[in-house]
């Protein structure tokens, strides 16, 4: 097991399913224009798990919204299997950082939501929803309301809901940010298992190094303001993985490597935040 780290390059160039080219986004603020994301390019191959990691304020969430098609005004292009993304794309399924289940719908009805939107016939809808509910390990909770579930379970409902739309690419924005560390590790297991089972192409946005290393084939380390790709780290840990991997020496090395790249940026971010205080 070796750890490869190299400057930005592209070894997945054959048939990327998701491709971002020269993504930049500028915000106008009271203190003048702020470049949130600066010329970010990357490719994701089918079945690959790619993480984007960076300190707070590196434009991660901006990138998430751009790829998900929720932000319209930006520079650069996002393509899905060669097709330019304009607005939310049917091949991309988003999982949000915030609590996003519909409190007035049961677990089953929450997961049925995207299928209702796409006018899937009712019987098929319920069958599909039940399948994905069992995939995230929530069988038996179909009739419960989100308020009756724990935070980790609600985030799994959101995950099942997005998976039910059968996206080619799963796009997640710190889906475990609001959860405690243990739940986070165990949910990471669930994500690994699902990802391996479905061969799901996944793009994860996170600030958690352990999480990124545990789950990813490749990590993009972003710099603090303006958000640029600082380095690409390939994680060559064996698959299938579980959360047990966090105790291995190789895992520790990967984390150290990523932290090495990230520390400088996180420090800059912190100093900037203190200066503005």
């Amino acid at each position: 097991m070796t750890l490869a780290s190299q400057p930005v390059s592209n070894i997945w160039a054959d048939m990327p399913i998701l491709s971002a080219k020269g993504i930049s986004k500028k915000f106008e603020t009271a203190e003048g224009p702020l470049i949130a994301v600066n010329n970010v390019s990357f490719d994701v191959a089918p079945g690959q798990f790619l993480s984007v990691i960076g300190p707070s304020g590196c434009g991660k969430s901006t990138l998430f919204n751009i790829i998900g098609g929720l932000t319209e005004a930006y520079d650069g292009t996002v393509t899905v299997a060669g097709e330019t993304v304009r607005g939310p794309h049917p091949s991309i399924g988003m999982i949000f950082q915030e609590e996003s289940t519909f409190p007035w719908r049961t677990v089953l009805d929450n997961v049925c939501f995207p299928l209702e939107i796409s006018n899937t016939p009712k019987a098929q809808r319920v069958e599909k929803a039940r399948h994905f509910i069992s995939l995230v390990g929530l069988s038996g909770f179909e009739k419960r309301y989100p308020a009756e579930l724990s935070g980790g379970m609600r985030q799994r409902v959101a995950m099942a809901r997005t998976l039910a739309s059968e996206p080619k690419i799963l796009l997640m924005d710190e889906p475990f940010a609001a959860l405690d560390e243990q739940t986070r590790l165990l949910l990471g297991d669930k994500v690994l298992q699902i990802q391996q089972q479905l061969q799901q192409t996944t793009l994860l946005i996170t600030h958690n190094i352990a999480e990124a290393v545990q789950l990813s084939d490749r990590i993009l380390v972003m710099s603090y303001r303006p958000g640029k790709v600082k380095r690409v780290v390939d994680i060559k840990l064996p698959r299938p993985r579980t959360s047990e991997i966090v105790t291995s020496a190789e895992f520790g090395m990967c984390v150290a490597q990523v932290w090495n790249d990230l520390r400088e940026e996180a420090t800059r971010g912190m100093q900037e935040a203190e200066r503005l205080r």
């Binding site: 929720l70 939310p88 049917p90 988003m94 996003s100 519909f102 007035w104 939501f113 209702e116 739309s165």
Partner: peptide
């Protein structure tokens, strides 16, 4: 209304009437 619920609806490409009927109205019940 929690803005993330509206983003969820948009991400699933809900039409305007679906947004109104399935998200805005129930969220405002």
């Amino acid at each position: 209304i929690d803005p993330v619920l509206i983003r969820v609806g948009r991400s699933f490409r809900a039409q305007a009437w679906q947004m109104a009927w399935k998200i805005y109205l129930p969220a405002m019940r």
